[in-house]
Design a protein around this nucleic acid. Structure first.
Length: 324
RNA sequence: GGCGUUGUGGCCGAAUGGUUAGGCAGCGGAUUGCAAAUCCGUCUAUCCCGGUUCGAUUCCGCCCGACGCCU
């Protein structure tokens, strides 16, 4: 345990020495990131839970091949859409990439909006057991029969602290908490206590692009419209033809989920587009909730049309000014 | 022009002579191996005017709008 904390600390320190560019979806991270990477002589590590999938290009608004050729990118196109993924795998792989990039004498810039991944990098992850899907399905079946209440009841005995923190209806976390005691004999709250060291924004370089909400909504509308205009539906059709089903994680992606329903004939195209728009907005809102809550995040307010290279320069200036 | 139906919050949609469903969207929060997921919280409206009534969103009349039918 002591060793784990040590290595966790070391890993966090390593991550904290990198540059980060984050922000809600459709906020212009890709463009700014490219400029910033050039200014820093950096390579980019994607901080995005869906861009890791091959063949999911249009709907994830992945950087184009040309953009990826301009600056070396990592953690993009590393999984088939049938493979599942997890935060911890992301973290492990990303940490390895940091070393690799540094060994070339280059700077590291993370670009992306997956907030949980960001937090895992900045604050660490306890060395807990991976998901046990057999166990989860068993418990899931119980919930179906008896509801969440008995689950919560059980957790109150095994891990009162977590039970107190979790809402009765928060089935996923209830199950994970149970899973951890079941697998390790120790409550998840015990493990989690060790890893919540917040860093002040001034002591790191986590820049968070932010637009006024109305403008962000406009940008989202434009992005969704252009996705559908450039063959998003065909992309998803291709995936389904080839793989039938996407992995548990890939299938959750905004837009993909909706288009799959459409291709199955359960939804018209206009409904699908509307639903994709709505879900993208909700996604963006949740992302911003995350960023507000992470002390590491420093907001870069973008009122009006600011050219990406200008924003990159602003960030560079601010980031260089501090000793990290 | 006549007759009929109808008018509930941004949208959908119940109900009721007095205790003002619900859903969606929006907004806020949570978030440690499914995270672009998931969970929680929040929003208080009955077209206008008049009448009946202790009390009207609910009953009556009228106005306006919508829809339908007829001439």
């Amino acid at each position: 345990m002591q060793v784990e904390i040590q290595s966790n600390r070391a890993a966090c320190a390593k991550a904290l020495s990198c540059w980060f560019l984050t922000g809600a979806t459709a906020g212009g991270k890709t463009q700014v990131g490219l400029h910033l990477a050039r200014l820093l002589n950096a390579e980019i590590i994607s901080l995005d839970s869906m861009a890791i999938y091959r063949e999911m290009n249009i709907g994830t608004a992945k950087p184009s091949p040309q953009q990826q050729a301009e600056v070396p990118h990592h953690m993009i196109d590393i999984l088939d859409p049938t493979e599942s993924f997890s935060v911890s795998r992301f973290r492990e792989m990303a940490l390895a990439r940091i070393d690799e990039i540094r060994s070339r004498g280059k700077e590291v810039l993370f670009v992306g909006g997956s907030a949980l991944f960001l937090k895992a990098l900045l604050r660490g992850l306890f060395e807990g057991p991976p998901a046990d899907w057999g166990f989860r399905e068993e418990v899931e079946a119980e919930v179906k029969k008896y509801g969440e209440e008995p689950l919560h009841q059980r957790l109150r005995v095994l891990d009162p602290l977590s039970a107190h923190k979790l809402h009765v209806n928060d089935r996923r976390r209830l199950i994970r908490a149970l899973e951890v005691v079941h697998l390790t004999g120790k409550p998840i709250s015990h493990w989690q206590m060790e890893f919540d060291h917040a860093t002040r924004a001034e002591d790191c370089r986590v820049f968070t692009l932010r637009h006024p909400r109305a403008i962000l909504h406009e940008r989202i509308a434009n992005r969704v419209a252009s996705m559908f205009a450039t063959g998003f539906v065909d992309e998803v059709r291709g995936l389904i033809d080839k793989y039938q089903n996407l992995s548990r994680t890939a299938a959750q992606a905004v837009g993909y989920c909706e288009v799959i329903e459409h291709l199955a004939g359960r939804r018209t195209l206009p409904e699908t587009m509307e639903q994709t728009l709505i879900r993208t907005r909700r996604f963006a809102r949740h992302q911003e909730t995350w960023f507000r809550g992470l002390s590491e995040c420093e907001f870069v307010e973008l009122a009006g049309e600011i050219p990406p290279e200008k924003t990159a320069e602003t960030i560079l200036e601010r980031g260089r000014a501090r000793a990290v």
